[in-house]
Amino acid sequence: MTTSGEKSITIALMDPPYESGTTTTALRIMDAALRKGISVNVFAYEGAVNLTMRGQAPHPNPVKGTSIEEQDHPSTAKFIAGLFTLGADSPKLEWVNCGLCVDERGAGECIDGPRRGGPGDLFKFSQESTNTLIIGTR
């Protein structure tokens, strides 16, 4: 959470990994905000709780004949781990995964950084942020 005088943005998102450009745009917005020194609060709801799953693994691409190393394709969890590095202190990245959504999806094993929470966290984030952007799914 940010202290008074610091800027912060709250973002709620719902899409699961790799299904929609929305996830990529949301991650780009978070990245841009953190680079500008703006703290970011994320409420990951429904399928978005899968974005931070620890077990995500890269794979080779048999169509292109490339190995894992040649592909060097980051997962959403790896991108978000990078965001946590950018947002380690000030600016700060806070990430809450909806706990009930995690349970439904068996998505409990996540990378370091996110914590379990609920809609109350989204409300609290929104009350304490400079602005809030709600990104639904479709």
Binding site: K7, I9, T25, R28, I29, D31, A32, A33, R35, K36, I38, T130, N131, T132, L133, I134, I135, G136
Partner: peptide, 19 residues
């Protein structure tokens, strides 16, 4: 434009941001 400019637009108190 780009997401940097978008963030500049969003990170303003009172701006109504709608996705």
């Amino acid at each position: 434009s780009d997401v940097d400019e978008l963030v500049d637009l969003l990170a303003v108190s009172g701006v109504k941001a709608i996705w």
